[in-house]
């Protein structure tokens, strides 16, 4: 048995001992968001995981990390962004009528940070996966809570529109016009991993405005310590994205791992994250 195997068994044993608690957070009169909360050692930084685009906190990559991190003694909070759906429990389909905006997401992240902050006195480390990393980055680039003590971006994506810059600019222009004129028409675009992403102009525009460059710029200017963990075989990223990212950020490449860091690479990911957490 390899060392990784022994470690996996140990983590499983520990996870059995950890106590996962579903928690809810009422965001407004109509929205209630759900999250998984695991209380850890107060002395260790708490970790707030943000799932990928349209996913929930139960997405496997996040879910495995929740267990591993919580088992290492960290307090963990993994919310599921409501995306405008109260008690959302499922991944939201690309074809759903997306009315949620980046702003809404940032507001929910802020609410969960405050919720966690109310239960944990130590620093809070934001860990995002995929577009969750973008949303965390967007949150951090705004007016983040002071309790945020670090950011780890896993498989951060460069952008979500499959267009060239000109077309993207034109689309953004159209969306801005639609938002400005109050046109409620839902538009369908090839967005992120969705072939048919159906969203209101405001919703789509809120995400389109986070262009790759803006992401790179935001990452480069983050105040808290940050780390980007990328898969060596992540095929969902644009060509040269990791290179661009490395230029101004600390990036750890897990060789052989894909966008979701699954398989044996999840342990490598966990090891990297735990090591990073242990440095805080």
């Amino acid at each position: 048995m390899t060392l990784k195997g022994v470690l996996l068994l140990a983590l499983c044993w520990i996870s059995l001992a950890a106590h996962a608690t579903p928690v809810e957070l009422k965001l407004s009169g109509k929205l209630l968001a759900k999250a998984e909360y695991r209380e850890g050692a107060p002395s260790k930084p708490a970790v707030l995981f943000l799932h990928g685009f349209l996913q929930t906190h139960e997405f496997p990559t996040i879910h495995r990390l929740i267990g591993g991190v919580a088992d290492s003694g960290h307090t963990v909070l993994a919310p599921t962004l409501s995306l405008g759906i109260t008690h959302r429990r499922q991944s939201l389909a690309c074809e759903a009528i997306h009315t949620h905006t980046m702003k809404d997401a940032l507001r929910e992240i802020d609410a969960w940070v405050k919720w966690l902050k109310a239960r944990h006195n130590g620093p809070i480390i934001l860990v995002g996966h995929s577009s969750g990393s973008v949303e965390a980055l967007a949150y951090l680039s705004g007016k983040p809570d002071p309790a945020i003590g670090g950011f780890i971006g896993i498989s951060i994506v460069e952008g979500r529109i499959k267009m060239n810059a000109v077309e993207t600019a034109r689309l953004i222009k159209e969306m801005r016009l639609a938002v400005k004129t109050g046109t409620p028409r839902v538009t369908t675009q090839q967005f992120s991993f969705c072939q048919k992403y159906q969203a209101t102009p405001a919703s789509l525009l809120s995400y389109l405005e986070w262009t790759p460059q803006r992401v790179l710029d935001a990452a480069a200017t983050l105040a808290p310590p940050n780390l980007f963990i990328m898969g060596g075989r992540d095929d969902r990223l644009g060509e040269g994205w990791v290179g661009e990212l490395k230029k101004r950020n600390r990036v750890i490449i897990i060789e052989g791992a894909n966008h979701f860091m699954d398989g044996e690479h999840e342990f490598d990911l966990l090891d990297v994250i735990l090591n990073e957490l242990n440095t805080r």
Binding site: K30, L31, G84, I85, T86, H87, R88, R89, Q90, L92, A93, E95, A96, I97, T99, P184, V186, Q198, T200
Partner: peptide, 20 residues
């Protein structure tokens, strides 16, 4: 989830009802 979405925010209810 989308059913709850429409019950909470029904601006696009007809679209949801007829197509989605």
């Amino acid at each position: 989830d989308e059913t709850r979405q429409q019950l909470a925010f029904s601006e696009y209810y007809t679209l949801w009802r007829d197509d989605r």
